[in-house]
Amino acid sequence: MNARRTLVTTARVLAQLRGDHRTIGLMLVVPCVLVGLLAWIYDGTPVFDHIGAALLGVFPFVVMFVVTSVATLRERSSGTLERLLASPMGKGDFMLGYALAFGVMAVVQAVLATAFAVYVCGLDVAGPLWQLVCVAVLDAVLGTALGLLASGFARTEFQAVQFMPAFILPQFLLCGLLVARDGLPDVLRWVSDVLPLSYAVDAMKSVTASAAEGADVGQDASVIAAWIVVSLVLGSLTLRRRTA
């Protein structure tokens, strides 16, 4: 691992994003639009207060997953990955470089979406706002890490896009948004106990529900962090210096 190579890679990924105004726009605006849509749908009911925050955790996760898995796949198919892996670049430098770059994007995205939800849509948050933002950023980085991992298994762009429904939708169904996790059949509940998005949503719910800077959020956050580390490590194992 080498800090310079990691940061140089982060800067390069951000420079690529900076040139792509439409992608930046989509990353920042889409979560706000979706939150706004949801607030409108449930106008006059308490439902938005109930699930609004949880969705603030889900959107950055999904967006970052898709963006990251496509970006890394592009790196593979353009030959730049082969070139980098023939250079002194460490696999960890590469993964971390990407995670940091998208982490920066995630901070901007989370601040915007949270501000929009709270100040424009009137989302009630009992806990401190900074915690909400932190959890949203953590969720986004989780999306990046899983996206890096997933792209290791995709050989074509078509496959990469299919990983969205394959990796994300099951987690979405089981994360406690549709049916509270306690109400799931036993087997499904066990599965949801393992999946990272469940903790992303749990953490968000704890922040909105209670004013105490409780250990609840901390516990969920550490599970998410563990998932991030594991995905980055597994993801870097899918990078092969030698290929057939």
Partner: peptide, 24 residues
């Protein structure tokens, strides 16, 4: 590599600088 392996969405300078920085 046989087919150019560079980033299409970066300038010539940004590409060359990036690969230069990687090797120090």
């Amino acid at each position: 590599t046989q087919s150019p392996s560079v980033y299409d969405d970066l300038s010539v300078r940004a590409n060359v600088r990036y690969f230069a920085r990687i090797v120090g």
